[in-house]
Design a protein around this nucleic acid. Structure first.
Length: 425
RNA sequence: GUGGCUGUAGCUCAAUGGCAGAGCACUUGACUGUGGAUCAAGGGGUUGUGGGUUCGACCCCCAUCAGCCACCCCA
């Protein structure tokens, strides 16, 4: 085997086929985001490490971020998430931005992790946030954006769900059974792991965390109560709004959804495959102190983030991946012989002026070879202009799918191809 | 960071410790103005890398790198 330089671990090469999917995903995300009035933004890929030290967990920066010194000795990080950048951008122009604001972004992120299914070291992520509105309606809107996205890409409420909870509801319910302070943090962690452990192990883990047997029983009742949300005015209103927006079917109350430990302060939600053991596709929630943490005034917000890999895994599982054309051009101009090469380029230019993507075979070669090439690249038409056509002032248009052909006057070529492409699509 | 499985032609994969192969793809020809078919011929390899065991290693052992998968974690 030839020695080729290996790609960096955990990175992916986007050949045109994969690039087509990435761009399709990007455009689907754009469509949904913009339909809700969100504006696209982007930050730098490189950030100072201090930006993350201010807010993110220690582990994120120390263990799972790419960090390196620049030539001046500053520690630079390849961004592992966008939220701190968003907070910085808002804090910098807090007084001139029109609040509330709705922003979205789609770009590359980096985490130094062991690659596995649905996870790599370089990945793309959709971030979408509504900043400056603390009402329930804002939380509901983000969940609706998420539901609309699933609709847009063809995932039904039977296949995926958005599991919703409220930190404040959990706080009050836990406080009612005497779980507060440090014990609450331990309990959140405990709840988060319930589905990953056997019931027996989970019980042991709970008791060793400092929870009493009575509290454990009460906690199990809480987590097993699908109507617990009725005790939260906030969640009742969220679900009512989702109902009114016609996307209630996607949303499910789930008291086991906690999300990261310190980040969110209100509504939290994550989307998952509905079938058993389904992993999270995206996650988000309501936060209060984001902008303040990087030196701005306090501003509440709600948002979520979705990686490009898990969503592709789910779409493949349910057979809703789009069939995307990888044809670089719709028309291929063949080159009859060396003498007609220049003429073939002239024909190509004429067709291109008609707004049609066209490739000119770059050298004279046998016709069968060129037609085969036209097939392989997925072109719909091949043009032939040999001595016969040239003498008559025409060009032969060959329809590769129908296996038919016709001749057209040179000056009508562009218009005729436009008509034929329109008729086929 | 922990564990399991796998690395052989461009791709998918064979080969009891004894001459490295097949299918697909590619190139050329059958076919000097017509493509997805057929037939024939041909080019392609330091078996991921480095050591070790052996008369002899794709095969066994060790290390390392990479891929896949499950943990950890999930911002």
């Amino acid at each position: 085997m030839k020695t080729t330089i290996q790609a960096v671990k955990g990175t992916r090469d986007f050949y045109p086929e994969q690039m087509a999917f990435r761009n399709w995903l990007y455009s689907s995300i754009r469509k949904v985001s913009e339909s809700f009035g969100y504006q696209e933004y982007e930050g730098p890929i490189l950030e100072k490490i201090e930006l993350y030290a201010a807010k993110s967990g220690e582990e994120l920066v120390k263990e799972q971020a790419f960090v390196f010194p620049d030539r001046g000795g500053d520690l630079i990080t390849l961004r592992p998430e966008l939220t701190p950048t968003l907070a910085r951008m808002i804090a910098q122009r807090q007084n001139e931005l029109v609040i509330p604001l709705r922003w979205w972004s789609f770009g590359p992120f980096f985490r130094y992790e062991r690659p596995q299914k649905g996870r790599a070291r370089e990945f793309f992520q959709w971030n979408i946030d509504l900043i400056g509105a603390s009402s329930t309606d804002a939380d509901a809107e983000l969940i609706a954006v998420c539901a609309s996205f699933f609709q847009q890409i063809g995932l039904s409420p039977i296949q995926v769900g958005i599991f919703v909870n409220d930190r404040r509801l959990m706080d009050s319910q836990l406080a009612a059974i005497g779980i507060q302070g440090e014990l609450k943090q331990a309990t959140f962690r405990l709840i988060d792991r319930r589905d990953k452990m056997s019931p027996e192990d989970w019980d042991d883990y709970a008791l060793s965390s400092g929870i009493s047997t009575a509290q454990l029983g009460a906690l199990k009742d809480m987590l097993g109560n699908p109507d617990l949300w009725q005790k939260s005015e906030h969640l009742k209103r969220v679900f009512a709004i989702l109902e009114a927006m016609g996307v209630r079917e996607y949303a499910v109350f789930d008291p086991q959804v906690i999300r990261g430990l310190d980040y969110y302060t209100g509504t939290v939600f994550e989307a998952r495959d509905r079938s058993k053991g389904g992993r999270a596709i995206l996650g988000g929630g309501h936060y209060d102190n984001l902008v303040e943490d990087v030196g701005g005034e306090s501003l509440p917000g709600v948002g979520f983030a979705m990686g490009d890999m898990m969503i592709a895994v789910i779409m493949e599982k349910y057979g809703v991946l789009p069939r995307l054309s990888t044809a670089p051009a719709e028309v291929l101009v063949t080159v009859f012989d060396d003498e007609s090469l220049v003429d073939a380029f002239a024909i190509s230019a004429a067709v291109r002026r008609a707004g049609i993507a066209v490739i000119c075979y770059p050298e004279s070669a046998k016709l069968p070879k060129q037609l085969k090439y036209a097939d392989r690249i997925g072109a719909r038409f091949a043009l032939i202009c040999g001595p016969d056509e040239k003498k008559a002032g025409v060009v032969t248009i060959k329809d590769l799918a129908k296996r038919t052909q016709q001749t057209v006057a040179r000056d009508r070529l562009g218009a005729e191809l436009q008509k034929m492409l329109l008729a086929q699509s």
